[in-house]
Design a binder for these strands. Sequence first.
DNA 1: AAAACTCCTTGCGCCACCGCAAGGACATGC
DNA 2: GCATGTCCTTGCGGTGGCGCAAGGAGTTTT
Lengths: 257, 257
Amino acid sequence: MADIHPVVFALKAKLAKTIGVTVLADVDRSLVRALPLFARMSDTDLDQLLARASTRRVPVGEAVFEQGQKATQFFLLLHGRLKVTQVTSEGQQIIVRVVHPGDIFGFAQALQRDDYPGTPIAAAESVVLSWPNDVWGSVVEQNPHLAVNAMRTIGQRLQEAHTRIREMSTEEVERRVAHAVLRLIEQAGRREEEGTRIDFPLTRQDVAEMTGTTLHTVSRLFSAWESQGIVKGGRQKLLVRDKERLQALAEGAGRES
Amino acid sequence: MADIHPVVFALKAKLAKTIGVTVLADVDRSLVRALPLFARMSDTDLDQLLARASTRRVPVGEAVFEQGQKATQFFLLLHGRLKVTQVTSEGQQIIVRVVHPGDIFGFAQALQRDDYPGTPIAAAESVVLSWPNDVWGSVVEQNPHLAVNAMRTIGQRLQEAHTRIREMSTEEVERRVAHAVLRLIEQAGRREEEGTRIDFPLTRQDVAEMTGTTLHTVSRLFSAWESQGIVKGGRQKLLVRDKERLQALAEGAGRES
DNA sequence: AAAACTCCTTGCGCCACCGCAAGGACATGC
DNA sequence: GCATGTCCTTGCGGTGGCGCAAGGAGTTTT
């Protein structure tokens, strides 16, 4: 996942000028090739696959598709960062998960659903590839390994969901937030001299929606942690200076006193 | 799912006397045939599949396998009811989901895991079929439809998990418990003259572990509901008399006042 | 039928967290 | 450079639900 970054930069430069299916054609193959999901696919199959893909640039704040919308395509995030949200009937919003570069998403159809269960919104400028649903079937037939791989992805997601349920059931807010931050560091951390930074814009509100609390509480926690030198905050920014201390908090320090 | 009950009763009578692989042989084919999962499988393939299956009776309170154990088999619940639990490092327990007759479970291997993520415990006397993992691969190859079907099952589970996360994030305890009870009624309800009964032994503690609260709070809620005539409780029992009122509570009545 | 369990109920005090509210700090557009 | 919008911080009061504790009611064991 880290090794695709250089290619992404090359891609980024091009993006600044023009965007279109043709522009990406020469770059995306190496990008896609680097993904574990497609690692074992033959060159010809991959070319065939890419030939049918569409490319789209998604500016910050825009949705790739909307919750409840008819699922006609499945997607791959090439670059950027998406937060998948769901809204309740009362309008309450939560963040289901964060999509990182290389992740596939919106493959509702593979799960036999006909609509998308959530709305992926670009947290940072993003580039997505998409295919019509029927490609999935033909590709899987030719390349069963891909189905297995997709299955694992879903298995991991299910696992994550259960972890989150367990955390929400048994842990108090501080531990949950600590866990969430650690996870983000793991998935989207960039090393700096002071520590590890979360590599995309993330508001307190976002963290609150990921952990089932309010932005107020998150803000208070971050402030407290900052005064202890564990993290360093900022507008839509967070830098973890002392990962060990944060891990201790996630394990349940602060319980005993 | 409801239509397998008559067959189950026939099975149950036999169970009272002897239990063994051979005893089941004549009954289980029709049972398995009734499951949507195997609906489109040919008779010969099904026979072949059943020939490789083992049968096991699981008494109340016993685990089919343990969390963290090496996953060597996958399972199908023929009869009874299982609650899948996970324990945290601190020993806190939660109920991840309830397995109903006809559900497959413990197919960690299909998700590329090598250990079981939870412990399924019999809430009622249960009968499970199991196959060694390698059968999965060969069966899926012969019958891709089965893989698709399994995928849908997982998709639904993921969906459920997200629903639960959303509920835990945004709803207060009463609504969550109401939702959980409604779900149980839907999946395991048996009609009686007074209302609909949850068709397996379920403690207040169980409900608490499904909704992320304590048995005290659940008990208090049930008492309050009972005094309003919405439900009728009992030791390890619950009967819903007024589903509409309960649904209203789940939607958020009691919020405004 | 008594003893030993397991499960359920209810009262009471407490505190983690929410919700409101007001103000400040950045960022972006006109 | 002023205005408008978004995001962050912090104080304060209220409360939902947790935890403790004690007692009661079924169920199984001996």
